[in-house]
Amino acid sequence: MRVTFTVNGRRHQADEVWEGESLLYVLRERLGLPGSKNACEQGECGSCTVRLDGVPVCACLVAAGQAEGREVVTVEGLAEYARARSDGAAAGARSERAAGDGTPAQPPVQPPPLAPVQQAFIDAGAIQCGFCTPGLLVAADELLEREPDPSDADIREALSGNLCRCTGYEKILDAVRLAAARGAETRP
């Protein structure tokens, strides 16, 4: 079957998709977006976490056909997603006008700088093998979007669906705290 949906702001179409394929398989093997990881394929590790219409889900448990017409954000688009969010927050109504004037957005010439949560994971030493990192980043970014100043208990609950086997989670907690603290510094 054919499946068409938006990934990281770009429309994608995949043909000859087997009906039993997951969104994860289509992203990784058909769309050339292997950032979302295939660690368990049973919803028990969170390595394939993506945003589906804004909601964090395990891409391994979404049938490809269920993504038809939907908006997906993966780790590959996280920096741009975070930038658009912060631009939107800073510019407020201005960005709405810009979006409404009919001028197509220019693709950035340079890749956008990392999302704050990505930079914090690097700085805090939260990445070792990195296989869990994409899913954790998507989940942590969504947490900070919802709750810019989370408590440790909030962080733990929000990330409880993401297994990490290398770090013992301490540096991941540090990273989310760090991203939150930096966010607080830049907020007016």
């Binding site: 997951s22 394929e41 395990c58 269920q66």
Partner: peptide, 20 residues
């Protein structure tokens, strides 16, 4: 999909039709 997809991913179920 949180139950059905696990069965599909691990080859435990191959229905003729999936009804989304």
């Amino acid at each position: 999909g949180t139950d059905v997809m696990v069965e599909l991913n691990f080859d435990r179920r191959r229905p003729d039709h999936l009804l989304d």
